[in-house]
Structures are given as structure tokens and as C-alpha cells.
Design a protein around this nucleic acid. Structure first.
Length: 277
DNA sequence: CTTATGGCCTGTCAGC
DNA sequence: TGCTGACAGGCCATAA
């Protein structure tokens, strides 16, 4: 379940290990992801050098020379591992290793995705703003545009639960179920509260904790709850810092009250019934 | 416009 | 033991 911190951790590693490398070939074993991977991939990509690795929300943007960018989304279970040499062991997973990008130093970037919810497509580097997936995204949560004033205004006259609003990529981009739960625990706000009833002070706390928790999670290499892996095949280390996610029935670290879980729009929401109001 | 719901997809696990 | 159904949840299409 890669969210912003996991994608950012991956981006930083790939920036170190893959930037400047030339992609010599692309092998597609299974093109059926959320949308079918274009059969022109190898022809379009082979021979191009990786100039930069960027991120927008949960999207990874691999900028190639010649004005083409590889847009990637890991969906639920996707991973991009750098295999060969002293990187990842390169354990073969023939059932789920769907694409393989061979690099000029003999290593390879392998896209693995058991549930195939991911996305890989090529876009024009000069027209990223016009790309469907990126066009309507809200501000990055770690940038100044995501302020208490901004969030407060976005919540006005909205009946949707505050947690669902935080996960709405049009409002703020990059937050998923795990971090939405953690942010609301930090802000001491119940996930099911109507967004429109959030106070100015609560909006302030939500923004402060969103920035703090996401930054801390990036520093820990993200969260591995089930199967997220970084480009070296290693799990993230933030799972041990989780306060509520996945802890139903266990005691709140602050007040010892058992953590509750409740479905909110088909998604489990974890919260402390005592600390969060 | 807002909000709710179902579909995609497969590995895992509880329960019978 | 092996089957069935629920669940995990990213994003999108569709409906009300």
C-alpha cells in the first residue's frame, strides 16, 4: 500500500542508483495492469537515458532524455526493485515480475505487482501538467500551499467524513488509508467527523500532523504493513511507529483505551475513542 | 455540484 | 483437508 512516503523513499533510492543509466531494453511479460501497458514501450524507451526521478503525489516520474517521461503508480501491491550487482538479490518471481527494464551496467529495474493495480505509461515531459492523472491533483502535503487556511476552506459545507476528505487526491495529494488514520490520531480528531464541522484549530492540528508524520515516515523509509518493498527489496521501518493503523483491540499508547476500527466508505478506519473527538 | 457504490485484481486468512 | 467468502485499498466510472 504505497502512499507518498513510500513513493518518495523509492524515488530517493532510484535517484541514487539509476539516474544517468541508459535503458537498453524493456521486456514485458504481462502487460495487463490497471490499464494495458503499450506494446510500443520497448521501441519508445530503449536507448534513452534516465535524466531524473521525480514524484508527484503517489506517482513516480522517471524522466528520460528526448522529452519522454515514464509515469508510474504502484497501486496496492506494486514495487520497482533494482536488481543485479550489489543491489537486490534478484529473486525471480515469474508470476508477478511483469516488466523488466535492462540498464547499460547490467542491472535491471523490475516492476512486480501481484494484484496488477499499478499503472505504467509514457507521457510528454513538457506537458506533464496536461496529463490526465496529474492534472487535477491537489497540493503536495509537505508544501506550503497545504496550509491550515487551505484545508479549513476545503472542508466548508462538506458533509463527507474528514478522513475521506484527506484521502481525496483533489484536496491534497498523496495521503492514503494508513497515513489518514495516523494523521487524525495525531490531531485528536475522529475519522468519521463531518469535514464541515471541523474547527479552525482542528484544521491547524491536522495540517501540522500531516506534515510531521509524512516527513517522519519518509525518514524511516516508509511503512511496510504487508508487502511494500523499496528498490533494494527492503521493507520500510515506519510500521513500528504506527499509533492506530492495524491495532484494533490493542491499547492506545497514550491513554490505554482499546483502539477501535470502523468501516468508512468501505475502508477500515482505526482510532482511539478516548483521545479522538 | 456532492456523495455513494461497485469494479478491477490476487494473496491471505478465518471459519466450516 | 480443502473450499468459500471476506478483506486488503489504490483509482476510476457511474449513478443518484
Amino acid at each position: 500500500m504505497p502512499e507518498l512516503p513510500e513513493v518518495e523513499s523509492l524515488r530517493r533510492m532510484l535517484e541514487q542508483s539509476a539516474c544517468g543509466r541508459r535503458i537498453v531494453a524493456v521486456h514485458i511479460r504481462e502487460p495487463r495492469l490497471r490499464r494495458r501497458v503499450a506494446s510500443t514501450f520497448d521501441r519508445m524507451i530503449a536507448g534513452r537515458t534516465i535524466n531524473a526521478v521525480r514524484r508527484r503525489a503517489k506517482y513516480l516520474l522517471v524522466e528520460l532524455d528526448g522529452g519522454i517521461t515514464l509515469l508510474g503508480h504502484l497501486g496496492m501491491s506494486g514495487s520497482l526493485t533494482h536488481r543485479g550487482q550489489d543491489f537486490c538479490d534478484g529473486e525471480f518471481d515469474p508470476a508477478h515480475d511483469h516488466l523488466r527494464f535492462e540498464l547499460d551496467d547490467g542491472t535491471a529495474l523490475v516492476y512486480n505487482d501481484p494484484r496488477r493495480f499499478g499503472l505504467l505509461k509514457l507521457v510528454c515531459s513538457s506537458e506533464l501538467g496536461a496529463v490526465d492523472e496529474l492534472r487535477a491533483l491537489g497540493p503536495e502535503p509537505l508544501e506550503e500551499a497545504f496550509s491550515a487556511q487551505y484545508l479549513f476552506e476545503k472542508t466548508r459545507r462538506r458533509r463527507v467524513a474528514i478522513k475521506n476528505l484527506l484521502m481525496d487526491q483533489h484536496v491534497v495529494a498523496g495521503i492514503g488509508n494508513i497515513y489518514a488514520c495516523e494523521i487524525l490520531f495525531g490531531a485528536r480528531v475522529r475519522p468519521g467527523r463531518a469535514a464541515g464541522r471541523i474547527t479552525r484549530a482542528e484544521a491547524e492540528r491536522i495540517v501540522v500532523h500531516a506534515k510531521g508524520i509524512l516527513a517522519q515516515a519518509i525518514g524511516s523509509g516508509g511503512t511496510t504493513f504487508r508487502n511494500y518493498r523499496d528498490s533494494r527489496g527492503q521493507p520500510g521501518r515506519f510500521a513500528t511507529s504506527l499509533q492506530v493503523y492495524g491495532r484494533e483491540g490493542e491499547r492506545c499508547f497514550v491513554c490505554r483505551t482499546p483502539i477501535k476500527s470502523k468501516l468508512l466508505g468501505q475502508r477500515s478506519s482505526f482510532y482511539c475513542p478516548c483521545c479522538q473527538r
